[in-house]
């Protein structure tokens, strides 16, 4: 998925909220968007999710997408289970898979008892669980989370963290905004920082700023090979054709296993601890 020269402003002549954004989001990326209030985080997420169209530039290669808003006060005239089943079908699931998915995701979030409760009668937290379940049940290729953790209890935040890791490991792109700087810490994560004035992003390798120690894995591709899907970490091409992956230390073994199991296998040149920032 690629953004080319993407900009957004509301109304012709209005100020640019985002401008000249070039961004490549390969599969298996976890991308955190940071910025002050009003820096365009939510606007960017809406553009990524396809809810909103850019005023300039283009977005190509968007996979099947799910979006989870920060607040879901959806006073829809149906039960949580019925809503999720409908949304599951909109996400492309069959009838049986949608109703099974609705039940399973509500249960995973400890809200199985609310499947038959009208959405208008749910508490704020349970509504948010429904919104998150909606985003996860279609196993989207792009998951956009706009402070989706807000309002969830601790256990559910953990379930969402785990689901995000699962999706990233499965090769999906997950883009999120969250006020907690420790959110998904330890997970190799790219950070896009939106400035208040320049609105030009600084793309930095965030695994280094994560709390857990990170590792550099330098690998040499066999001729003609592309990086296997579902690889954790942020790949970075080196000048001699090798690729450096920055991954959280707990993921090192997994990463090596994927690379060695690839057909043809990749050559591991070095595994070193990344220097702390």
């Amino acid at each position: 998925m690629r953004l080319t020269g993407v900009g957004r402003r509301y109304g012709p002549g209005g100020p640019w909220i985002l401008r000249d954004l070039d961004l490549d989001i390969p599969g298996g990326t976890l991308l955190r968007v940071e910025g002050a209030n009003g820096s365009g985080k939510s606007t960017l997420l809406r553009l990524l999710a396809g809810i909103d169209a850019p005023s300039a530039g283009r977005i190509t290669g968007r996979p099947r997408t799910a979006y989870v808003p920060e607040r879901f006060p959806a006073a829809l005239p149906m039960t949580a289970g019925a809503y999720l089943t409908h949304l599951g079908r909109v996400h492309g699931l069959g009838r049986a898979a949608a109703s099974r998915g609705a039940r399973e995701w509500l249960e995973r979030f400890g809200a199985g008892a609310y499947a038959g409760t009208p959405l208008s009668e749910l508490s704020k937290g349970t509504s948010q669980k429904v919104a998150v379940a909606q985003g996860l049940m279609g196993t989207p290729g792009l998951l956009v989370l706009d402070e989706a953790w807000t309002g969830l209890d601790r256990a559910s935040r953990g379930v969402l963290d785990a689901a995000v890791r699962e999706r990233v490991a499965g090769g999906a792109r997950v883009v999120f905004v969250d006020h907690d700087p420790g959110r998904l810490a330890g997970e190799p994560c790219a950070v896009l920082r939106l400035g208040n004035h320049s609105a030009r992003p600084a793309f930095e390798d965030a695994a280094r700023s994560a709390r857990q120690p990170t590792m550099h894995i330098v690998v040499e591709p066999p001729p003609g090979a592309v990086l296997p899907a579902g690889l954790p970490g942020v790949p970075e091409p080196l000048s001699d054709g090798a690729i450096r992956l920055t991954v959280a230390r707990p993921r090192t073994d997994d990463t090596l296993r994927i690379l060695l199991a690839a057909q043809p296998p990749w050559h591991i040149r070095s595994v070193t601890e990344a220097p702390h920032p």
């Binding site: 809406r46 396809g50 919104a131 989207p140």
Partner: peptide
């Protein structure tokens, strides 16, 4: 009919 939060979810899934 859809509140905007719900509409956003549907729009992301299927296209506005």
């Amino acid at each position: 009919n859809e509140p905007s939060a719900a509409r956003d979810c549907t729009a992301a899934a299927a296209g506005p």
